[in-house]
Design a binder for these strands. Structure first.
Lengths: 196, 196
DNA sequence: CGCCGTGATGTCAGTTGATGACATCACCGT
DNA sequence: ACGGTGATGTCATCAACTGACATCACGGCG
């Protein structure tokens, strides 16, 4: 028999999510989480840099999917098509873990500090996306902007999906939202909401 | 003579910015800031909710300018034109305080916690923008997306401006970046970076 | 004129988040 | 069997924040 129960990190993540759910983020102490996971506060900090980070897994399948899809998309595709493709791929990853995603999101929605961290994570995603796009030959500003717009689209689509779980798939929401984006930035004479 | 030196809040902001600049955010303690401002740590927390907030003034002329310009733009204007207008207005506000803005940005760039807070502030701006656009009659999703794209544009333009102070004005950078956005989301046959 | 409420500040004690230094000890390979 | 290693525990310490209570110039009001 091994010296320690396996998957300490996983146990900490689970304990934290449960406690954050039951009593709220502020009301739960790191020591509590650790104890519930059969560990020590100090050990918690060996696995996560802070109390928030436990909700944002280091091994992030979403980020991986995004990176992969962006890097391997056919080169001649215009940036927004690449983004569309990548976001749709990433959507599947989330949909496989829909209930966990929703639980996590509920906790995050209830706490400003967690929302900040989430924004930071999304910004990191955007910056990774931008880097990949640059490596595909895009000019710096174009790459950065395309990445930001992609993440913005994802944010809006994701929120719609979370709040309306039954009717549509996330991928569908993303397509809709991207269409909205196209209309928004279309020049005057073309479809969209603008007059004239 | 009054009991206390005037503008405690301002003194705290000034002291904090100086200390953050000289010794870094992490290395400076709230007690230090307070002492340098001739006050107490406890008093610091009566003016700012935390150590980060001192860099993000409550009375935010940028936000005001944005809100104003968005609310008062002619109604028939398409969303992206409204955004363009509002961002350009806001740009002037920043350009009047260019050196302060740069100093602030240097401190923020050096610290992840501060970057998180900045992202949160920008998100708040976006959500305010979205609300205003909704009040102008835009559908929820369209409003949210337009606001997000506006802020994304601002982020990219601002970064370019900060890193290249001499050559262009911020307003100009914003116009350029918005053009890039238009090209990005343009349908296949139209100008931009896409092939075909 | 003097009393009184008020608001900005000070003082103090306490909790919790976060980190460094050092100890432990099953496990693994030699 | 033996020594190195890595995940964990223990202890001490600092700094971020917060609640409770004290202070006292100032300004109004009787």
């Amino acid at each position: 028999m091994s010296r320690w129960k396996p998957d300490a990190r996983g146990r900490l993540e689970k304990a934290a999510l449960e406690l954050y759910n039951h009593q709220g983020f502020d009301a739960t102490t790191v020591a509590e989480i650790a104890t519930r996971a059969g560990l020590t506060e100090r050990t918690f900090y060996r696995h996560f840099t802070d109390k928030r980070e436990v909700l944002f897994p280091a091994a992030n399948p979403l980020a991986d999917a995004l990176a992969n899809a962006t890097a391997t998309a056919p080169v001649p595709l215009p940036p927004l098509e690449v983004i569309t493709h990548a976001l749709t791929e990433a959507a599947h990853v989330l949909e496989e873990r829909a209930d966990l995603a929703r639980q996590r999101q509920a906790v995050i929605a209830a706490n400003p500090e967690l929302q900040e961290r989430e924004l930071a994570k999304l910004a990191a995603l955007a910056s990774m996306l931008a880097r990949t796009l640059r490596e595909r030959g895009l000019e710096t500003t174009t790459a950065a902007l395309a990445a930001e717009i992609g993440i913005a689209t994802f944010k809006v689509a994701f929120e719609r999906w979370i709040n309306d779980p039954a009717r549509h798939t996330l991928a569908q929401r993303i397509r809709e939202t991207l269409d909205t984006a196209r209309h928004l930035t279309a020049p005057y004479g073309r479809g969209g909401d603008g007059p004239r």
